Simulated scan of single mutants.
Amino acid sequence: MKVDPRGQRFAAVLTSIVLLAVLLTGNWVLLAAQAVVFAIGVFFGLRHHPYGLVFANLVRPRLGPPGELEDEAPPRFAQGVGLVFALVGVAGYSLGATWLGITATAFALGAAFLNAAFSFCLGCEMFLIIKRVTPKKKISEEVP
């Protein structure tokens, strides 16, 4: 499936705002809500992602058509990376290891901000590197 990259950048802006609010307030419930947003993107796809729905219904109709579409797999993987950091952050905050919550949230914010400000998706780049270095399975000509 192909997605509008502008929607990914829009989602990164909203994610950055939420994660910054978490860092400023220490509110792990807000971070848990962001984790749910990440999980929806991972498990149900970007077309069902809450921020993607806002983009599709309120922002995209006001823009022209995208210059290009991109494969959904890399940004969906990036949502998974965000989910892991958000879950670690929730665990840190809720279990009293505030340093862990702050660190995990800051890493997630850094990645989201890179996408929001510079259109550089760190998780997408990780996906492409992993795909490049993962050996392809070869189908043997002979069947035992």
Rank of each mutant, 00 (worst) to 15 (best):
L53H: 09
F55S: 14
L87G: 14
F55I: 14
E68V: 10
A86R: 11
A97Y: 13
V22F: 01
R47N: 13
A12W: 04
S119P: 00
V3H: 06
F77N: 05
C121P: 00
L114Q: 06
S16A: 11
G45Q: 09
V29P: 02
V90T: 09
F38E: 11
G67P: 06
S140D: 04
L100D: 11
V42H: 06
G92C: 09
A11H: 05
F127C: 02
A11L: 04
M1A: 08
V54W: 13
L53P: 05
V88T: 15
K2Y: 05
F44E: 12
C124R: 02
G82R: 10
I102D: 02
S94T: 06
R62W: 08
I129T: 14
Q8A: 12
E142D: 13
P135R: 12
K131E: 14
I130Q: 13
V133P: 04
P61A: 09
W28V: 03
V81W: 05
G92L: 08
G52L: 10
E142M: 13
V29T: 09
A39K: 01
G26N: 08
P66M: 13
L19V: 03
Q79P: 12
F43V: 09
V84M: 10
R6I: 05
G45V: 09
A33C: 11
A12S: 15
G41E: 05
V88P: 11
T134A: 13
A111L: 06
A39E: 01
A73N: 05
P5E: 01
G41M: 03
R76H: 04
C121N: 01
L83R: 10
N57C: 08
L20F: 05
A116D: 02
L63V: 12
S140P: 00
R9I: 07
G7Y: 07
G7A: 14
V29K: 07
L31K: 10
P5K: 02
K137I: 15
R9D: 03
R6L: 08
L23C: 12
L114Y: 01
V59R: 06
G67Y: 08
P50Y: 09
V36D: 00
T105D: 02
A11M: 04
P66H: 11
P66E: 11
A11W: 04
V143I: 08
L31H: 12
F107T: 13
E125C: 01
E70C: 00
